[in-house]
Amino acid sequence: MRVDVLTREYPPEVYGGAGVHVAELVRALRREIDVAVRCFGAPRSEPGTFAYATPAGLAGANAAIATLGTDLEIAADVSGADLVHSHTWYANFAGFTAKRLHGVPHVVTAHSLEPLRPWKAEQLGGGYRISSWAERTAFEDADAVIAVSDGMRRDILRAYPAIDPARVQVVYNGIDLADWVPVDDPATVRSLGVDPERPSVVFVGRITRQKGLPYLLRAARRLPAEVQLVLCAGAPDTPEIMAEVTALVDELRAEREGVVWIDRHLPRAELTALLTAATTFVCPSVYEPLGIVNLEAMACGAAVVGTATGGIPEVVEDGVTGVLVPIEQADDGTGTPLDPERFVADLAEALTRVVSDPARAAEMGAAGRRRAEELFAWDAIAARTLEVYRGVLAR
């Protein structure tokens, strides 16, 4: 069996959870089957991996149009595959086109949904209508749709009711438990501007509306004075969200010490040391299909405080591996809390409760590591993905 995996992100050009998912899934699948990767960006040296730049004639076009141009070039090269598997709307149109051009089945994995990310219009302008069309078209036509959580499966069927529910199957995101391990390295933690002897709350994520960073920054004003807030946050979606976050960080720093903002991508050695030293990891997202960052934190032995939304409750076991923060959300696709002040207060209370009891936080972190080992190892996830492939090919 040869499967062509179609993706925008692939190492070393990875900026989000979907890219991490694809890289780890491909590595696990290649132990069993022939996998060709077709990705966006600069040429890759990895065997079996082919990269595609934006077509020269579309260099100045809207980003969504440029994406479709790259998709067409990818689709043209898929000949010979038994099945194509696309990830995110960026590559969905390539899979849709390849299915028709070469007569091969198309599987999509849903890492997020455009109807539930309306703020993307701020980034893409009219291109958001293009991305939404590409995703809907590919999903409704796909031979199988993989959801990364039960919560995501519900979202898919609600957003795209034309899809046969039997075609939507759940295969969780995973974590490489050999790479993501607790690393006791206080010197590295200090080099990042963090005191490993003081309690800390660590956030890792892109600066985008869905990650809920402004709510965290408001909640942090209520944390005990000795607690450090560590933000590993970069890659803003728009200048507007960057300006909002910058202003909130400046206000927080004017009120308290221990606000550390790391705006570069941390290599794994540094990030694992930081997560290991954390009293708690925080995921304040208002939209999160699953959240690989939560798995990374759990694998490093950190307790997780996360919003009770999307797939997060399937990862974080409330009261065992961390704490879930309740949220009531608007049903307009934005995920906006109906009562933002209540959400901020509840987030602050949960964080304070965890960081104020380091021994209990350590117990939760150890339980999180065990949960990651039991449910989210990549070999098991690759095996489940192969089941989906074989089921599609058997039809």
Rank of each mutant, 00 (worst) to 15 (best):
G301H: 09
G322E: 04
D332M: 09
V325W: 10
A269H: 15
D332F: 07
G335K: 04
A299W: 07
E317S: 07
L275Y: 12
C300G: 14
V286C: 00
V325Y: 04
T321I: 01
G335D: 03
L351S: 07
E314R: 06
D263G: 08
W261H: 13
A299R: 08
S356E: 06
V344C: 05
W261F: 04
G319F: 05
Y287T: 06
R268L: 15
G291D: 08
F281S: 15
H265W: 14
T321S: 13
V259S: 01
G310F: 05
V316N: 07
D263E: 12
E257M: 05
N294H: 11
T321W: 00
E349A: 15
E270D: 15
A273S: 11
P340H: 08
L324T: 02
A277M: 09
G319T: 10
W261M: 11
P326Y: 13
A297R: 07
T352Q: 07
V316W: 00
R264Q: 14
I312T: 15
I327N: 02
L266P: 08
V316P: 09
T321P: 09
E257A: 14
V282N: 03
G258K: 04
L338V: 13
V344R: 09
T336S: 14
D318Y: 09
P289W: 04
G311Q: 06
A303Q: 10
D339W: 10
V259C: 01
P337N: 06
V320I: 13
V316Q: 06
A269I: 12
V259I: 02
I292H: 11
E296F: 00
E349K: 14
S356F: 09
P337S: 08
I262H: 02
A350N: 10
G311L: 02
I262P: 03
R342Y: 07
R268K: 15
